[in-house]
């Protein structure tokens, strides 16, 4: 594998994509949908008035990023899900495999092309980010970290879709399976976490009410099952934003709220109680984060997917998928 080889493949892939012409319309629709959603969010915040003064931009930014990630799970799988088997169906893959390009060149070239296209969609939201910043209250560090994590998560989706396109003979199957893989990450992790938590042992929690009366109840112990929730891209993205555990008064910042919630899932004892004066008692001001684990799982998935893709592109091959010809 050489940088020149990877670049040759990536350039060709991007050129073909750009020529197909539909991407302009797609990016335009993508931008307009997000613009509409962000405008609605801004309207809603406007009606809250002074309650959210000073943090309006931060709330909008968090909401925007969750919407971007949500829409990206619909768009990004399509960028790579037919990359390898589509070329095989069209009869061009084998002619590329007999050139000086290695399996690594082809796999990574296709990966970078798909990832680059995905990042283009993210880049298209830049004007919306500028709007959020203009509203005030956006944390520069949050923008930096969230953008990096977003890129990594979309890269994972591209890698998974690419591997499926290399593993499965039919393009329709790999497209469906790619969406299934992404839904497993987004919704499947939630369901798995829910089921595992239901089966987890109960622990005792004590809460003190305003009138000084202590109340004891039990809840499932999530200190082990949180791992199932960690790979969820929304969890990773939200928790990666700088932790602001103490600004909970009118915590409307969606990233902060999700981050706090999943950290309490990981460390049930970190959640503070309140004493008779309404003062916070106990708890942990800085519970351990969830996102490094989640991001690590995602990156491991991406690395595994790329390794599988390279393997499947290696020639000469012995094994062929049933009913598949080389050429």
């Amino acid at each position: 594998m050489t940088p020149a080889g990877v670049a040759t493949v990536a350039r060709q892939e991007l050129r073909l994509r750009v020529r197909r012409g539909r991407w302009r319309i797609l990016v335009a629709v993508w931008f307009l949908v997000l613009l509409g959603l962000l405008a609605l969010l801004r309207l809603a915040l406007g009606s809250l008035g002074p309650l959210v003064a000073g943090q309006r931009g931060g709330i909008m930014y968090g909401g925007l990023q969750l919407m971007v990630l949500g829409l990206a799970t619909l768009v990004v799988p399509a960028l790579a899900a037919q990359s390898v088997n589509g070329d095989r169906e069209r009869g061009v893959l084998a002619t590329v495999q007999v050139t000086g390009l290695t399996a690594g060149d082809i796999a990574f070239g296709k990966f970078f092309a798909a990832w680059g296209a995905a990042l283009l969609f993210v880049a298209a939201t830049l004007p919306l980010v500028v709007w959020c910043v203009a509203e005030g209250g956006v944390d520069a560090l949050a923008v930096f970290v969230v953008t990096l994590v977003m890129a990594a998560l979309l890269g994972t989706v591209c890698a998974l879709a690419l591997a499926l396109s290399a593993l499965l003979a039919r393009t329709t199957t790999s497209a469906v399976m790619s969406y299934l893989a992404v839904f497993t990450l987004t919704i499947g992790t939630l369901i798995l976490f829910g089921l595992a938590t239901a089966a987890a042992p109960q622990i005792e929690q004590t809460e003190t009410f305003d009138d000084g009366e202590a109340f004891t109840f039990t809840e499932p112990d999530t200190s082990k099952t949180w791992v199932l929730l960690a790979p969820n891209p929304f969890v990773v993205l939200a928790d990666a934003a700088p932790y602001r555990g103490d600004d909970v008064e009118f915590g409307l910042d969606p990233l902060g709220n999700i981050g706090r919630a999943v950290r309490f899932v990981r460390s049930p004892d970190a959640e503070p109680g309140f004493d008779e004066n309404g003062e916070r008692v106990g708890g942990d001001a800085n519970p351990p984060p969830v996102w490094p684990t989640g991001l690590a799982v995602n990156l491991a998935l991406a690395a595994g997917a790329l390794a599988v893709t390279v393997r499947r592109l290696r020639t000469p091959t012995y094994r062929l998928a049933p009913g598949q010809r080389v050429a």
């Binding site: 060709q12 073909l16 197909r20 590329v96 050429a327």
Partner: peptide
């Protein structure tokens, strides 16, 4: 190959130059 496809979106020149680069 006996049945082969071509990258339909590129021009004939780009097509050949891509393979030249690939080699």
């Amino acid at each position: 190959p006996d049945v082969f496809g071509l990258y339909e979106g590129v021009t004939a020149r780009e097509y050949l130059e891509f393979y030249a680069a690939a080699y």
